[in-house]
Write a protein that binds this DNA or RNA. Sequence first.
DNA 1: CTCAGGATTGAAAACGTATGCAAGCCGGGT
DNA 2: ACCCGGCTTGCATACGTTTTCAATCCTGAG
Lengths: 338, 338
Amino acid sequence: MSDAKVTSLDVARLAGVSQSAVSRVFSGASASQTTIAKVRAAAEQLGYRPNSLARAMITGKSRIIALVVAYLDNQFYPVAIERLSQALQARDYHILLLMAGNSPEGIDHVMQELMSYQIDGIITASVAMSSDLTDRCAALGIPVVMFNRGQDGTAHSSVTSANVEGGRKVAEFLLAGGHGRIAHIAGWQGSSTGRDRTRGFLAALEEVGAPAPQVIDGMYTREAAAEAARTLMAGPTPPDAIFVGNDHMAFAVMDVLRFELGLSVPQDVSVVGYDDVPMAAWPAYDLTTLRQPLNRMVEATVATLLAEIDDPDRGTEKVEIAGPLVLRGSARIPQGWT
Amino acid sequence: MSDAKVTSLDVARLAGVSQSAVSRVFSGASASQTTIAKVRAAAEQLGYRPNSLARAMITGKSRIIALVVAYLDNQFYPVAIERLSQALQARDYHILLLMAGNSPEGIDHVMQELMSYQIDGIITASVAMSSDLTDRCAALGIPVVMFNRGQDGTAHSSVTSANVEGGRKVAEFLLAGGHGRIAHIAGWQGSSTGRDRTRGFLAALEEVGAPAPQVIDGMYTREAAAEAARTLMAGPTPPDAIFVGNDHMAFAVMDVLRFELGLSVPQDVSVVGYDDVPMAAWPAYDLTTLRQPLNRMVEATVATLLAEIDDPDRGTEKVEIAGPLVLRGSARIPQGWT
DNA sequence: CTCAGGATTGAAAACGTATGCAAGCCGGGT
DNA sequence: ACCCGGCTTGCATACGTTTTCAATCCTGAG
């Protein structure tokens, strides 16, 4: 049946038509029913598939989009990747995966490499791009959508949840629960996501005249968050509620409270997270958390990206999607809350 | 500086040399010091990068390898992807990510698409390929390495941990712990990995004349594993130890034991997992488990794949790497075990 | 029967690079 | 002085496709 490489020319010869005819059949251009039939039959017999690289070179569109992700420890990102991948595959796009790692300049290097593959677009998940790289993408006309992170100076589109509002919701919830000593282990303050959640949270507390909570940056890592929890609880007035900047850190905080300090959650301390990763629903944590509407964020991300690919002059877009607070067992639930 | 598309011809003109010279400089072929300098300078000024697609088309090597993965719920795979990605990036390869999903034939379709990108190799993580696809890869000379899963009939390389031996170790450990009613929630018996672990486990029990344990297939999912745990514990002789086919299921089993049935681990039931994902070390689970040596498995995977790419006639290889049993708090530890 | 008009078709150029080949250059040995 | 050999270099071709353009076919109206 199928030997090594079979080209459109081989198919053309077997079908008794020109190579152009074969191309037209497979690229959807017009052709008569008879030639379509002949070409299809010959292609089937030879096991022919059009070479995407050659096609990409001539059309300028590779149908490849680059997905740049910083780390996968936080369960939020594997799940997001899974959804993004499915959504893009369904639209006949393919994903070039790139781990940004922790090297701040290494990413620029690899991104440059990526550019040479004529990718049609870029999705960054929790990764900041150097402004140098940003300019480069703009110059080459490559659309970029930042998933779950904004970046102020740049002209890129972004899709996030309504983080400021989310922070507010958590504050209101904890206040309604009658918590008097509220603390905050923040998401990395170098990220817009972390800053926005913190800002909304603090603003809501301030508006009702609540005392300003103690805030420690958890850097989005288990280690920093655990250390922050220890510091908070060892202080003169240990908190009775902690808002943690994402679920990943919240699990670490709960582990410290329960297994190092022997405290009960939520009897001694209420803990609220952010994201609602699948693990938050596991009974071992049963974490009350503000849900990031992943499916809608993913849909918005691919919709925005593909729209920009189809129409380069479309302009960018900053999408914010609000999510609900999911009430579970890790935080005291105020009277009357559903 | 850099405008839209800059080709080797542009660089050649600016440098006052031929296009071939530019190509030679960037492809590492020989050239005089003076031309190298001129070309480098011109390229720098224009912001030139060789077009990988064009290069791939002529050389036949795209420096892209496809990574096919079934699901990312199990933390083992995100971590594996991270490592694989880093290892391949370090060798200047790029990763085309493909989620196999649950559609058994959908994967074949997408794989066919992938082939058209002239990928240099394929890594499958816990995914079985149809024999049709297998043949196709062989015919096209595309090396395939199966990560964490074998497949008997095929001529592909595979890298797994020593699953039979691992199953034995767990059995010996539970026996030494004095457990009398041992049960097994198996990894999916449709996978070599699941079958091997089960086989080693049962063989070790049988050799010492222990009663044959009750075995239920956990299908590698939380739901099936949880249901299996309920079934086992509701039976006439509930087990005092359960070997679970991987950590991902073991967490679900522990959740059922503790939060549905109110049992203590390991006082009432010992639980042992397989994989040693990062979460197994979290105090909320503190899971005793047989470690799959991820780093070495990843190294072996890329080494095998790249070797087959460099030398197509190299033949395939089945690598098995043994891992230790990691003693933690979820299972009773026999006297004298370290 | 003739002819206009649209639908099909094939030839050829283009995409951006690598590489075989022949010509040019240079140095050293006789 | 001459020639032989090796190192560089440019020319031209190839990779497999899409797409323009002109030529050809067919159909139906006059």
